[in-house]
Design a protein around this nucleic acid. Structure first.
Lengths: 187, 187
DNA sequence: CAGATCTTTCAGAGATCTTTGAAACCTTAC
DNA sequence: GTAAGGTTTCAAAGATCTCTGAAAGATCTG
């Protein structure tokens, strides 16, 4: 780190926010530079070029290009052609909720679906396996797996509702009640 | 990979699910082994020891110890002492929603708060900076930052409600309407 | 079509995160 | 007190993810 915030806090404040959002996006499974780039675009009144972004963020052209491509893929930024200009200009999608919804729909939802799929497979495998002598442990395990599957299904429903823009009551996620009350309950 | 699923699909199915949950937890910002360990405990009728887990998951004692410590920290598992036994036994917390709530409360909430903090700081810095000649660009940037802050505040409220166990309407996150209708709107 | 300008790709370098395994540290039993 | 069994710590190795920079690929201009 060679540069401490000088008198142009205008710029450094911007970079601080860009880093904060980069951190946030990274935490949410995206690459940090994507957040930093989106932020600069979001805060800029006018469209910026790849070179602009690279200069401000000290990133190589390659990194910029890749990050921009991915942001574009998620609809977080838009590439625009400016009449006289040769190079591409970029603008930020400003509706955060719209972007979040898209990620929920295209990424989170399929993660939950895949997860549910592997649960279903596992349950089938176990049920096919022990037809004769279902030990207590095996029965317990199956019951647990089914609880998880129920949970995943509920989560999927909630996510869908969320994406569709509805009100959501996540408390339905709480403790799916056991189907077999005969099984021993913990405390 | 030396072992393909043999006839003990009982075990391999378990490991498949463990991996799936490991992936899920990793995606949510935790270490993959934590999810794998939690799963084995969750599916086991009886408490397991660190050695049991290490054997099944092919992990070193060190890795197991660290993962268990972190799981315990989050209340995802419990360490129990069995009368005659010398070593520690572990059991899984079975209420997923309880665990999720805890993470929302202790981790996500503070992330959003920190984020809001850095926004507030940036806004203050910028407002202190340009008292005389607020250029159009500067005005625009400030407005954007304030939108973000509003958004963060709303998110914080929603998260709190969620944690407190309430119904949540995330559509309030949509487009915080501009406070200055005089500012140019996109499209 | 050739030259200039901009963008994308990608192998290697670099940074970051994770795991191992051995030593230190407990705790219990004798 | 001390030996044995169990757990934790941590530096180094290993794996994974990310960035760089140069070359290849576009696109526009004249």
């Amino acid at each position: 780190m060679q540069d401490s915030p000088r008198s142009q806090d205008l710029l450094s404040a911007e970079l601080v926010v860009a880093d904060a959002i980069g951190k946030l996006m990274h935490f949410w499974g995206f690459k940090r530079p994507m957040g930093r780039i989106w932020t600069l675009l979001y805060l800029s009144k006018d469209p910026l070029t790849a070179a602009d972004l690279g200069d401000r963020l000290h990133m190589s052209s390659g990194a910029i290009s890749m990050a921009l491509a991915e942001l574009e893929k998620w609809g977080a930024i838009t590439r625009t052609w400016v009449p006289g200009e040769r190079r591409d200009f970029f603008t930020a999608e400003t509706s955060v909720w719209t972007m979040v919804r898209r990620v929920l729909r295209e990424r989170e939802l399929s993660i939950v679906r895949d997860f549910r799929g592997s649960l279903t497979t596992a349950i089938a495998a176990l049920e096919a396996e022990s037809p004769k002598a279902p030990s207590l442990a095996a029965t317990y395990r199956l019951e647990r797996l089914k609880d998880l599957e129920r949970l995943a299904r509920t989560g999927e429903t909630l996510l869908s509702a969320l994406v569709a823009g509805g009100v959501v009551d996540p408390t339905v996620l709480a403790e799916p009640k056991p189907q077999h009350p005969s099984l021993p309950q913990h405390d």
